[in-house]
């Protein structure tokens, strides 16, 4: 049996019919082809599938699509304006915080949620906010620097 849901994704409202066992991650990647949200551990451990659900970062692998009915979802595709990167994206590029890139969408969305709540976080607050997102390339230092740089750039 399919469920009818309404989800706003990156500002666009979608009416969708989804099976009960469809995760939000699968809905984004497989049905809507929004493949910027990466599939990692599928157990809520790695943060690669992070999206903002009503403004809060969540592991989309552990959200059923039916649970997102009526919600507002922001994925990495919703950040840039045309060819102009979001200040956090630009800061990640400029700082060298992107290596393989697998964790990057999740890292950037968590950073966005952090900076919206706390525009001037200290290093411990940044590391705390990012503690649910694993990166096996960078050693995190450049990522923390990128968030610090973005905090200065953002209005």
């Amino acid at each position: 049996m399919k469920h009818d849901i309404q989800v706003t994704i990156n500002g666009t409202s979608h009416q969708l019919a989804v099976p009960a066992n469809r995760t939000l991650l699968e809905l984004l990647r497989d049905d809507l082809r929004l493949t910027g949200t990466n599939k990692g551990c599928e157990a809520g451990d790695c943060g690669a599938c992070t999206v903002l659900l009503d403004g809060d970062p969540v592991p989309s692998c552990l959200v059923l699509a039916v649970q997102a009915d009526g919600c507002d979802v922001l994925t990495i595709e919703g950040l840039a304006s045309g060819n102009r990167l979001h200040p956090i994206q630009q800061a990640f590029v400029d700082t060298g915080a992107v290596q393989c890139g697998y964790c990057t969408p999740g890292m950037i969305l968590v950073s966005l949620a952090l900076l919206r709540k706390n525009p001037h976080p200290d290093e411990a607050e940044i590391r705390g906010a990012l503690s649910g997102n694993l990166c096996r390339c960078t050693g995190y230092q450049k990522i923390v620097q990128a968030v610090q740089a973005a905090a200065k750039e953002m209005p």
């Binding site: 451990d45 970062p57 968590v110 649910g132």
Partner: peptide
């Protein structure tokens, strides 16, 4: 508990 992401859900 867990991580910030897990705590949000």
């Amino acid at each position: 508990l867990g991580t910030p992401l897990v705590r949000n859900r």
